[in-house]
């Protein structure tokens, strides 16, 4: 047990070592990194303007008020930002497998999954995290919630779980590259786009769409259920408590799919 723990800590260290190197390489292009951050912030500001405009006309969407929807939005963007800033490597897997450069991950005495996760840095993520964080803070300030230490702790757990779910979805779908060989992240992108449904309360969707984002690809646990829990939205609030479990489940599934794919890895013929 102690040995496993030590090993896990060591892996985290290696992960940050690799990531740190990638960051250094990117920071060499200073202007790029500033533009990326600003553009990410702009995307969010326009998204915010969109909901704000809608709520100028109507008081609520199926009982969800403006600031509650903003909370969902901020969770979508923060988790997206965490995915880009810390785990952008999942988006490189398709190309690595396609051209056989994945070989090198298998020649090092470190879990290939850790190497994949640390494989790249997307600085637009920082812009997303900062603006998303600001939106979340404003939202929390505008909704009446009884803040207890327990609820505060739960907020942190929910954010971490939501980010885990998103990253796990990225990783699990990235593993599709072991079966479908294209240089583009086709399946990951496709599934990522499903995340659009996470921006609004899922009660507005038909049953089929709800089933998809709750059960099949649980994007609803990235934004909807955590928000429902935090703001005590009756029927849904309790399900929000399941978010950490869903995160563990997603991570387990992603790693399993990745491992199965790994055994199929064929490299390339030259």
């Amino acid at each position: 047990m102690a040995a496993r723990l030590r090993r896990a800590r060591w892996l985290v260290y290696i992960y940050f070592r690799c990531l740190g190197q990638q960051m250094k390489a990117i920071l060499a292009y200073e202007a790029d990194f500033v533009i990326l951050m600003i553009s990410a912030a702009l995307v969010q500001i326009t998204g915010f303007l969109f909901i704000w405009t809608i709520f100028q006309r109507i008081p609520d969407i199926n009982g969800w008020t403006f600031w509650q929807v903003v909370m969902m939005y901020s969770l979508v963007f923060i988790t997206e930002g965490v995915g880009s800033l810390f785990f952008e490597g999942t988006w490189r897997v398709s190309r690595l497998i396609y051209n056989g450069n994945f070989d090198q991950y298998l020649l090092r005495p470190v879990s290939p999954i850790v190497q994949v996760l640390a494989g790249a840095v997307g600085f637009n993520g920082l812009g997303n995290i900062i603006t998303g964080g600001m939106l979340m803070a404003i939202s929390l300030g505008n909704v009446q919630v009884q803040w207890t230490p327990g609820r505060l702790l739960m907020l942190v757990i929910l954010i971490v779980s939501a980010a885990t779910i998103r990253v796990a979805i990225n990783l699990g779908t990235a593993a599709s590259a072991f079966w479908i060989k294209t240089p583009w992240s086709l399946v990951p992108f496709f599934v990522h786009q499903l995340g659009e449904f996470a921006k609004y309360p899922i009660t507005i969707y038909s049953l089929a769409v709800q089933a998809m984002v709750v059960v099949a690809i649980p994007f609803a646990f990235v934004s909807f259920f955590p928000t429902a829990y935090l703001f005590n939205m009756e029927a849904w609030s309790a399900i929000g408590l399941l978010t950490p479990l869903v995160a563990v489940y997603c991570l387990f599934m992603a790693v399993t799919i990745f491992r199965i794919g790994l055994r199929r890895y064929e490299s390339t013929g030259h």
Partner: peptide, 24 residues
């Protein structure tokens, strides 16, 4: 592999070595 490298593409060679030191 003559056709591929195990070095990290956009970081200095010495940093690749240092990373290897930590990984191995």
């Amino acid at each position: 592999f003559g056709q591929r490298t195990t070095l990290w593409w956009d970081i200095p060679v010495i940093e690749s070595f240092n990373l290897a030191r930590d990984m191995y």
